[in-house]
């Protein structure tokens, strides 16, 4: 893979990052509500309000605020939280692993269950199992995540008492953490299981109809080798693209799971910071989220190039 390909992808990534943060900055200019009133309530005296305004740099002209904002992001030093006095970087990075675990597990479930389901449906088209899988997949996609979450809680936590309702589990107990992760990951991943299953079925059916597959069959290649080694490699590309975007949506969607299951996470941190108009924390949290999203898509792009030599050649030509 040429360095030029890598460099162009990195440049595109940086452009996305800059555009996203510029949009965020513009939004913070427009959002109503005074941080001092949100933080201090009735104790927001004019003096306290002025002090908090100064600390947040909100009294500065917009170009200076933008410059300071860009500087903080570029150095990775997000400053100190006005309310708690803690470094904002610490606040973000101590909750980040929980969000990554949640989103990663949800994606993992989607792949582990959605892929085999989609492959089975594509290799048994029209059968009863295919029709059942279609019904179940669409149902998974159609039911809102929060309904799934409450339903799972009622059944598995309250009725059966198999899994806990809330929290993230003990730090030094992996099994406990897995138990606490199961329901929230399933709540946000269930829709993706159905979506991946449908996507894999559709793209695999299309690939299985290609002339090279018919040729391979004619040469006596069939079963596992035909499906998994010849067809799936091409059929996986649209699914990977969907997952790349999906990871970003999962990061954003994790906030509701974090609230319903009382889990720590980036989504909750950003949500509470928005409510409190704690702009520095919002900016840091969103920056890290966007960074994760673009990094994920960078990895997905690299996977595309690895999977499909045609894309590699085209990229090198450009």
């Amino acid at each position: 893979m040429r360095l030029g390909v890598v460099a162009s992808r990195l440049a595109a990534t940086l452009a996305v990052l800059v555009a996203a943060m510029a949009l965020l900055f513009a939004l913070t200019l427009a959002i109503p509500g005074d941080p001092a009133a949100a933080m201090l309530g009735p104790r927001a005296t004019p003096e306290a309000t002025a002090s908090i305004t100064r600390q947040m740099g909100l009294d500065q002209p917009v170009p200076i605020r933008l410059w300071r904002f860009a500087g903080l992001l570029a150095t990775g030093d997000f400053g100190t939280d006005i309310v708690s006095g803690r470094p904002i970087r610490d606040m973000v990075f101590e909750v980040l692993p929980f969000t990554l675990a949640l989103a990663g597990t949800a994606i993992g479930l989607a792949l582990a269950l959605g892929f085999p389901a989609g492959i089975h449906a594509a290799t048994h088209p029209g059968r009863i199992s295919d029709r059942l899988l279609a019904l179940v997949s669409v149902a998974f996609v159609a039911v809102p995540n929060f309904v799934v979450a409450i339903g799972l809680l009622l059944v598995f936590s309250l009725r059966l008492r198999w899994l806990p309702v809330q929290g993230a589990g003990e730090t030094d107990d992996l099994l406990d953490q897995v138990r606490h992760l199961a329901l929230p990951a399933l709540a946000i991943g269930l829709g993706w299981i159905g979506y991946i299953a449908r996507l894999v079925r559709a793209s695999l059916l299309e690939v299985l109809g290609q002339p090279y597959i018919r040729t391979a069959r004619a040469f006596g290649i069939g079963g596992f080798r035909l499906t998994w080694k010849l067809a799936l490699r091409n059929a996986a590309i649209p699914t990977l693209a969907a997952l790349g975007v999906g990871f970003g949506r999962l990061l954003g969607g994790a906030v509701f799971a974090e609230i319903i299951f009382a889990r720590p996470g980036l989504g909750t941190l950003i949500f509470q910071a928005i409510r409190a108009r704690n702009y520095p924390v919002v900016q840091a949290g969103v920056f890290v989220t966007v960074l994760l999203f673009v990094a994920t898509n960078l990895v997905v792009d690299a996977l595309f190039l690895w999977l499909d030599p045609r894309l590699r050649a085209e990229a090198e030509r450009l």
Partner: peptide, 18 residues
């Protein structure tokens, strides 16, 4: 002291004994 923002989650947590 366990932070639970959502009131419904808190009630479910209470019913589950957490």
């Amino acid at each position: 002291l366990r932070p639970v923002a959502d009131p419904t989650t808190a009630i479910l947590g209470f019913e589950a004994g957490e």
